[in-house]
Amino acid sequence: MPKKFLLPLFLAVALVFPLLPFANDYVLHVVTLVMVYMVLAMGLNVLPGFCGLLDLGFVGFYGVGAYTAGLLTVHYGVSLWIMVPAAVLNGALWGVVLGAPTLRLSGDYFAIVTFGFAELVVLFLTNEIWLTRGPLGLPGIDPVSVDLSFLNPAWIYEFEGERPYFYLGLAMLALVYVTMRRLEDSRLGRAWLAIREDQLAAASCGVNIYAYKIIAFGISAGVGALAGCFFARWTLFLSPDMFKFWESFLILCMVVLGGLGNIHGAMVGAAILIALGEVLRVVLPQLGLPNEARFLVYGLIMIFIMRFKPKGFFPKIAAAGEANPLIKRLRAQLEQHGGTSR
């Protein structure tokens, strides 16, 4: 089947999916969860995948986004149109603030600082009870309501059940996916890849390494916060436990499984690990093992992939720019002239 039908087909299936008979609340919930993790995986991918930087505290930005959204809703009843940008900007801002002093240092230090940041976020959320209600969690977040009353007073749509969230999640996924594809195949994305491949050579081509790393960190953090924002308004309850290191690890594992730097791979990785998690949740107790033991499997996956399949389990489905019409035209020309284009 020609590649160009793939995307419309995928979209059509996705749009019809919630209406199918077997798509009950549980199924929809899991699929929506997969979409949230796909967004997270794509957001994290920017750092280790595009820039070669290990971010061990990605969940911190997810948490910042979620709590920003949750608190703004609970305390101020802020409308969606303000809440989403506020949460995303807050996440991105923390990324920039954290990145500015650390991105000049070697990558190992970056990994550690991100880790420490995420731990501090959890401590803050746990201990600042006046603000977050601490370990008890933050209940009473209103579901999403899309307020278009400035266009027509009757246009206020309150979300109910899993189905509307599925569509909202799909929209978020599509937005992030398109953005990531565009970034990857642009002057900005190439500069990132250059940094990943060889920093000195990148600088010798005029790439301001420091600035581009900060941009990457800001974007990654912003996407994490966006996912957090959705998560808060979907589960309607937040607790600090949801944003522990395990989450960072899980998301990193998705990216590694799909192949560092591979946008499609990251999404496939997310789907597989969420599905695997659901299966293990049933299987592990039957083996008499605690639910956390599933991380044993994730740890093994990481070790094995780095050892035997460092490009991931899903070799690039489409390399950066393959879809770019300019590159396609070039390829056609080269083939006409009998060139090699391995």
Partner: peptide, 17 residues
Amino acid sequence: RLFSSLTVLDNVRIGRH
């Protein structure tokens, strides 16, 4: 010091940065 996992064209495109 090439960007070895990128294409030949991408290497030069980064030169245009």
